[in-house]
Amino acid sequence: MAKHDHTHEHTAPPSDPALRVKALESLLLEKGVIDAEALDEIIDTYENKTGPRNGAAVVARAWVDPDYKKRLLEDGTGAIAEMGFSGIQGEDMLVVENTAEVHNMVVCTLCSCYPWPTLGLPPVWYKAAPYRSRAVSDPRGVLAEFGVEIADDTEVRVWDSNAELRYLVLPVRPEGTDGMSEDELAAMVTRDSMIGTGVIQAPK
Protein backbone atom coordinates (compact mmCIF):
# COMPACT_ATOMS: atom_id res chain seq x y z
CA MET A 1 0.00 0.00 0.00
CA ALA A 2 1.26 3.43 -0.89
CA LYS A 3 2.11 5.70 1.96
CA HIS A 4 0.19 8.91 2.21
CA ASP A 5 1.21 12.17 3.74
CA HIS A 6 -1.04 12.46 6.80
CA THR A 7 -2.31 15.92 5.86
CA HIS A 8 -3.83 14.48 2.68
CA GLU A 9 -5.72 11.69 4.37
CA HIS A 10 -8.73 13.61 5.56
CA THR A 11 -11.18 16.30 4.60
CA ALA A 12 -12.13 18.96 7.11
CA PRO A 13 -15.77 18.41 8.16
CA PRO A 14 -18.13 21.32 7.43
CA SER A 15 -19.89 23.41 10.08
CA ASP A 16 -22.16 21.85 12.69
CA PRO A 17 -25.44 22.94 11.00
CA ALA A 18 -24.17 21.67 7.62
CA LEU A 19 -23.49 18.25 9.21
CA ARG A 20 -26.92 18.25 10.86
CA VAL A 21 -28.55 18.98 7.49
CA LYS A 22 -26.58 16.15 5.88
CA ALA A 23 -27.70 13.83 8.67
CA LEU A 24 -31.35 14.77 8.30
CA GLU A 25 -31.29 14.70 4.52
CA SER A 26 -29.51 11.34 4.24
CA LEU A 27 -31.87 9.71 6.76
CA LEU A 28 -35.00 11.03 5.05
CA LEU A 29 -33.65 9.95 1.65
CA GLU A 30 -32.90 6.44 2.92
CA LYS A 31 -36.34 6.11 4.41
CA GLY A 32 -37.90 7.23 1.14
CA VAL A 33 -39.57 10.22 2.81
CA ILE A 34 -38.01 12.69 0.36
CA ASP A 35 -36.16 12.45 -2.94
CA ALA A 36 -33.13 14.44 -3.97
CA GLU A 37 -34.53 15.61 -7.29
CA ALA A 38 -37.56 17.19 -5.63
CA LEU A 39 -35.29 19.09 -3.24
CA ASP A 40 -33.17 20.46 -6.10
CA GLU A 41 -36.31 21.54 -7.89
CA ILE A 42 -37.60 23.41 -4.83
CA ILE A 43 -34.28 25.20 -4.34
CA ASP A 44 -34.18 26.17 -8.01
CA THR A 45 -37.76 27.44 -7.88
CA TYR A 46 -37.21 29.64 -4.88
CA GLU A 47 -33.76 30.89 -5.90
CA ASN A 48 -34.54 31.58 -9.55
CA LYS A 49 -38.21 31.47 -10.39
CA THR A 50 -40.07 33.28 -7.64
CA GLY A 51 -39.32 36.73 -6.49
CA PRO A 52 -40.61 40.25 -6.26
CA ARG A 53 -41.09 40.45 -10.05
CA ASN A 54 -44.27 38.41 -9.57
CA GLY A 55 -45.62 40.91 -7.06
CA ALA A 56 -44.56 43.80 -9.31
CA ALA A 57 -46.64 42.35 -12.15
CA VAL A 58 -49.66 42.22 -9.84
CA VAL A 59 -49.15 45.84 -8.78
CA ALA A 60 -48.75 47.10 -12.35
CA ARG A 61 -51.91 45.29 -13.42
CA ALA A 62 -53.84 46.89 -10.56
CA TRP A 63 -52.56 50.33 -11.57
CA VAL A 64 -53.76 50.04 -15.18
CA ASP A 65 -56.93 47.96 -14.72
CA PRO A 66 -59.49 49.33 -12.22
CA ASP A 67 -61.58 46.13 -12.35
CA TYR A 68 -58.54 44.05 -11.51
CA LYS A 69 -57.63 46.40 -8.68
CA LYS A 70 -61.13 46.05 -7.23
CA ARG A 71 -60.87 42.26 -7.35
CA LEU A 72 -57.36 42.40 -5.87
CA LEU A 73 -58.50 44.41 -2.86
CA GLU A 74 -61.61 42.28 -2.35
CA ASP A 75 -60.09 38.85 -2.92
CA GLY A 76 -56.29 39.09 -2.95
CA THR A 77 -55.68 35.35 -3.19
CA GLY A 78 -58.00 34.90 -6.16
CA ALA A 79 -56.81 37.96 -8.08
CA ILE A 80 -53.15 37.00 -7.58
CA ALA A 81 -53.89 33.42 -8.70
CA GLU A 82 -55.39 34.89 -11.92
CA MET A 83 -51.85 36.01 -12.74
CA GLY A 84 -50.55 32.50 -12.10
CA PHE A 85 -49.04 33.06 -8.67
CA SER A 86 -50.08 30.71 -5.89
CA GLY A 87 -48.65 28.14 -3.52
CA ILE A 88 -47.17 27.80 -0.08
CA GLN A 89 -47.38 31.03 1.96
CA GLY A 90 -49.70 32.52 -0.63
CA GLU A 91 -52.88 30.66 0.24
CA ASP A 92 -54.54 33.57 2.02
CA MET A 93 -53.49 37.00 0.84
CA LEU A 94 -54.76 40.40 1.87
CA VAL A 95 -53.72 43.31 -0.33
CA VAL A 96 -53.63 46.68 1.43
CA GLU A 97 -53.57 49.90 -0.56
CA ASN A 98 -51.30 52.83 0.19
CA THR A 99 -52.87 56.25 -0.34
CA ALA A 100 -52.17 59.84 0.67
CA GLU A 101 -54.06 59.12 3.90
CA VAL A 102 -52.69 55.68 4.84
CA HIS A 103 -49.26 54.09 4.61
CA ASN A 104 -49.23 50.32 5.19
CA MET A 105 -46.22 48.26 6.16
CA VAL A 106 -45.87 44.55 6.84
CA VAL A 107 -43.97 42.60 9.48
CA CYS A 108 -44.09 39.16 11.03
CA THR A 109 -43.40 39.65 14.72
CA LEU A 110 -43.32 35.94 15.60
CA CYS A 111 -41.21 34.52 12.80
CA SER A 112 -41.02 35.40 9.13
CA CYS A 113 -44.36 34.75 7.44
CA TYR A 114 -44.05 36.33 4.01
CA PRO A 115 -45.93 35.97 0.71
CA TRP A 116 -43.52 33.69 -1.17
CA PRO A 117 -45.46 33.39 -4.47
CA THR A 118 -45.53 37.16 -4.99
CA LEU A 119 -42.32 38.32 -3.27
CA GLY A 120 -40.03 35.29 -3.15
CA LEU A 121 -38.20 34.60 0.10
CA PRO A 122 -37.85 37.43 2.62
CA PRO A 123 -34.79 39.68 2.79
CA VAL A 124 -32.41 39.23 5.70
CA TRP A 125 -33.60 42.28 7.61
CA TYR A 126 -37.22 41.08 7.51
CA LYS A 127 -36.17 37.96 9.45
CA ALA A 128 -34.00 39.86 11.93
CA ALA A 129 -35.03 40.66 15.50
CA PRO A 130 -34.60 44.47 15.23
CA TYR A 131 -37.11 44.76 12.39
CA ARG A 132 -39.56 42.28 13.94
CA SER A 133 -39.73 44.24 17.17
CA ARG A 134 -39.29 47.82 16.03
CA ALA A 135 -41.70 47.74 13.09
CA VAL A 136 -44.48 47.61 15.66
CA SER A 137 -43.06 49.80 18.45
CA ASP A 138 -41.58 52.52 16.23
CA PRO A 139 -42.78 52.18 12.63
CA ARG A 140 -42.00 55.78 11.66
CA GLY A 141 -38.48 55.43 13.03
CA VAL A 142 -37.96 52.24 11.04
CA LEU A 143 -39.34 53.87 7.90
CA ALA A 144 -36.97 56.82 8.38
CA GLU A 145 -34.05 54.37 8.53
CA PHE A 146 -35.22 52.98 5.20
CA GLY A 147 -35.22 56.55 3.87
CA VAL A 148 -39.02 56.80 3.81
CA GLU A 149 -40.52 60.01 5.19
CA ILE A 150 -44.22 59.79 5.94
CA ALA A 151 -46.21 63.01 6.36
CA ASP A 152 -47.41 63.63 9.93
CA ASP A 153 -51.05 63.54 8.85
CA THR A 154 -50.66 60.19 7.08
CA GLU A 155 -51.70 57.24 9.21
CA VAL A 156 -49.14 54.41 9.41
CA ARG A 157 -50.72 50.95 9.68
CA VAL A 158 -48.56 47.96 10.57
CA TRP A 159 -49.84 44.53 9.55
CA ASP A 160 -48.54 41.52 11.48
CA SER A 161 -48.41 38.48 9.19
CA ASN A 162 -49.18 35.04 10.53
CA ALA A 163 -49.63 31.46 9.43
CA GLU A 164 -53.19 32.17 8.25
CA LEU A 165 -52.83 35.51 6.47
CA ARG A 166 -50.07 37.32 4.60
CA TYR A 167 -50.06 40.82 3.23
CA LEU A 168 -49.00 42.58 0.07
CA VAL A 169 -48.84 46.36 -0.03
CA LEU A 170 -50.24 48.02 -3.16
CA PRO A 171 -47.94 51.03 -3.40
CA VAL A 172 -48.94 54.48 -4.65
CA ARG A 173 -48.47 54.84 -8.39
CA PRO A 174 -45.90 57.58 -8.86
CA GLU A 175 -46.81 60.75 -10.72
CA GLY A 176 -45.61 61.23 -14.27
CA THR A 177 -46.28 57.61 -15.29
CA ASP A 178 -49.54 58.13 -17.19
CA GLY A 179 -48.36 56.96 -20.60
CA MET A 180 -46.38 53.96 -19.37
CA SER A 181 -47.10 50.38 -20.35
CA GLU A 182 -47.85 47.68 -17.79
CA ASP A 183 -44.36 46.20 -18.27
CA GLU A 184 -42.69 49.59 -17.82
CA LEU A 185 -44.69 50.15 -14.66
CA ALA A 186 -43.84 46.70 -13.29
CA ALA A 187 -40.15 47.44 -13.79
CA MET A 188 -40.46 50.42 -11.41
CA VAL A 189 -42.05 48.46 -8.57
CA THR A 190 -39.53 47.58 -5.86
CA ARG A 191 -39.72 44.73 -3.39
CA ASP A 192 -39.58 47.12 -0.44
CA SER A 193 -42.52 49.14 -1.78
CA MET A 194 -44.64 45.97 -1.57
CA ILE A 195 -43.54 45.36 2.04
CA GLY A 196 -44.21 49.01 2.81
CA THR A 197 -40.62 49.89 3.71
CA GLY A 198 -40.14 51.76 0.45
CA VAL A 199 -41.97 54.16 -1.82
CA ILE A 200 -41.63 54.28 -5.59
CA GLN A 201 -39.88 57.34 -6.89
CA ALA A 202 -41.38 59.30 -9.78
CA PRO A 203 -39.41 58.87 -13.00
CA LYS A 204 -36.90 61.63 -13.70
Partner: peptide, 17 residues
Protein backbone atom coordinates in the same frame (compact mmCIF):
# COMPACT_ATOMS: atom_id res chain seq x y z
CA UNK B 1 -31.54 34.56 0.22
CA UNK B 2 -29.30 31.68 1.29
CA UNK B 3 -25.76 32.43 2.38
CA UNK B 4 -24.72 28.76 2.54
CA UNK B 5 -26.02 25.65 0.73
CA UNK B 6 -27.16 23.89 3.94
CA UNK B 7 -29.65 26.74 4.47
CA UNK B 8 -31.24 26.09 1.08
CA UNK B 9 -31.32 22.34 1.77
CA UNK B 10 -33.00 22.76 5.17
CA UNK B 11 -35.51 25.11 3.56
CA UNK B 12 -36.27 22.72 0.69
CA UNK B 13 -36.73 19.72 3.00
CA UNK B 14 -39.27 21.69 5.03
CA UNK B 15 -41.22 22.75 1.94
CA UNK B 16 -41.17 19.21 0.57
CA UNK B 17 -42.34 17.58 3.81
Amino acid sequence: VFSEPWQAEAFAMTVKL
